[in-house]
Design a protein around this nucleic acid. Structure first.
Lengths: 109, 109
DNA sequence: ACCGGTACATAGTAACGCAGAATAGCCGCC
DNA sequence: GGCGGCTATTCTGCGTTACTATGTACCGGT
């Protein structure tokens, strides 16, 4: 992953993960795999787990421990009301930024 | 400015500034003012200046000191060939990210 | 017994934007 | 003359985030 992508992900990765969780509850390993499917090929597992801990501590998601047939138990995260609110705020912020950048990209101001 | 915006600007602000410089050379104070016009009302001056020092040290911009009628001399920055290349890379990275987020926003996968 | 896949966790590092303050030059006004 | 206000740049310390690298643990197949 380029350095530019790394820096850009700061602030957006969290929103991406919350958006994924808004569709359906998922656990860390699964989220990482899904991100890779989406093309974020080099997002480190550790990054995702750390992020999930953060959003949990901020009370944006709920957690449920579910035993797995393979390996240790899964921690399944689901977006709660506060998380949905936060996600909406994220989309507003993103839209604002995306609009300005779109303008800049389409031939200056 | 919200905390989300602060985090999102990491990595994109640099691209925004370089995009501004690709239109025409400008100096720090002017860039800050232009950003505010664009709606980025709370971007700290210090942030812009630090960013300019960074891109200069990485050889993406040239600098020319120009005396001002009012106040201390201005440091006018202009995008060079390497900077243009870097900016193109930035747009590619941005487009990639924007596409995925667009998909997520338009009702999940 | 071992290896590979599943699943989570953590310590240390680097990069970036922000808050706040300092510095410096020029102007107009009381 | 001094003082505040505008222009313009610089610096320090701080908080947040993603990456690297490593470790732990559980299971199934061979």
């Amino acid at each position: 992953m380029g350095k530019q992508m790394t820096e850009m992900l700061k602030g957006t990765l969290e929103g991406i993960v919350l958006a994924l969780l808004s569709v359906q509850p998922e656990y860390g390993y699964e989220i990482t795999a899904r991100l890779r499917e989406m093309g974020f090929s080099d997002i480190a597992e550790g990054t995702v787990y750390a992020l999930l801990v953060r959003v949990e501590q901020r009370g944006l998601v709920g957690v449920e421990k579910v035993p797995s047939e393979k390996g240790p138990p899964r921690k399944v995260y689901s977006l709660n009301a506060q998380g949905r609110e936060y996600l909406e705020e994220f989309w507003r912020t993103w839209s604002f930024l995306a609009e300005r950048l779109q303008q800049l990209h389409d031939g200056g101001r």
